[in-house]
Design a protein around this nucleic acid. Structure first.
Lengths: 196, 196
DNA sequence: TGTTTAACATACTGATTGGTATATTATGTA
DNA sequence: TACATAATATACCAATCAGTATGTTAAACA
């Protein structure tokens, strides 16, 4: 019973994602959000808790909707193909013309005031999960003879993620899709092969 | 004539650099700055103009004091050595234990509110200068036969800067110096040699 | 020793921040 | 039709934001 909600929370969350992704966590005000969503402040707080809760929910949505390709990419037959799919897919996310450029996980907060430290650390932790997934994939590849045994999977996962982060910053600065794919081209030139 | 200033503007600027570098442009408040500097608001405004002016002056100081190695690095005898010095030197800046980790040019603003767009664009422009300097160095190297003629200097400059940006984000997230030097190790594995 | 000048300290401005109290309106149920 | 419930709209909260007006203090010059 009770009055019906006059807005779609899921649609509102998608809008929040766009705003947060463009402006970052601290650069986005509640007024920015309610204005873009077309709802009032009490409606936002009733539906999503507070700003921090809302941001975490947009992070979940972002990973579900835009970063889901990574899981499939890691299941490519070879390690090299997995990494290439990872980086190419990420470039396409970073420069998706349907939304603001860059990555929510990077644009969200690289540096921020003390008040937002919790969000900054959340983002760092989420990035670490992705890197660990890649490292595990490379470790598996090394067991399969698909990745040189004298190379360190952690080193290469760190390198690949670093290239990704760099491209995310560039994308937020307006880099084109083609430009970033050329970065991937160069980044992959060093990929190690098993000698036999 | 008139009363003497009771603080050292240059010392105050160094402190501002520390604060801005840790918290970013928007994450830093005037109160954060005056508190750290040990001066009052009117003193700050009298000495440095407004927040935006002060930030630009800290940027100048940062480049002068921490990024000056880049100029010398580019003068290394070979392109490969120049790039290696560039990346290694940058890692040392990013993880200098005397200051907060990360790069002011990246921590300053990746994403921000509309009110700080001018600062964001200033940072993008300054980054572009560095990339162009590297590209020019590689172009010179190509003329000297020190860099393959079938490789694009712009592509490689873009790649190197991307790796640098990625490491800057990592550093701000707490990455160690050793960790980042291992990223450089991997990043340089693909450096192209002239076939003869 | 005045007078001028500039940096000092205190207190303030209007605007905006994240978040909420209150009253109204619309709904399902009894 | 009356009641309970929940979402709305309006207006508000204290705190903080960047920036400043004002009065006081300390120095250099005449």
């Amino acid at each position: 019973m009770g009055r019906h909600r006059e807005f779609d929370p899921d649609e509102a969350l998608h809008i929040a994602l766009q705003v947060f992704r463009r402006r970052g966590y601290e650069g986005t005000s509640i007024s920015d959000l309610t204005e873009a969503m077309g709802i009032t402040r009490p409606s936002l707080y009733a539906a999503f808790g507070n700003k921090e809760d809302l941001f975490r929910r947009t992070l979940d949505l972002y990973e579900r909707q835009h970063l889901c390709f990574a899981h499939e990419a890691l299941q490519a037959p070879t390690a090299q193909e997995a990494v290439e799919r990872l980086l190419r897919g990420y470039v396409d996310v970073l420069t998706d013309p349907m939304g603001p450029p860059g990555c929510l996980g990077v644009n969200g907060a690289v540096a921020c005031s003390e008040a937002s430290e919790a969000i900054r650390e959340e983002l760092i932790a989420r990035r670490m999960v992705n890197e660990n997934n890649l490292r595990d994939r490379l470790e598996k590849a090394r067991c399969n003879g698909d990745f040189p045994s004298n190379e360190d999977p952690a080193d290469w996962a760190r390198y690949v993620v670093s290239v990704g982060l760099g491209m995310a910053v560039r994308a937020a600065s307006g880099a084109s899709r083609e430009e970033l794919h050329r970065v991937v081209d160069v980044a992959l030139r060093s990929w190690p092969t098993v000698s036999r």
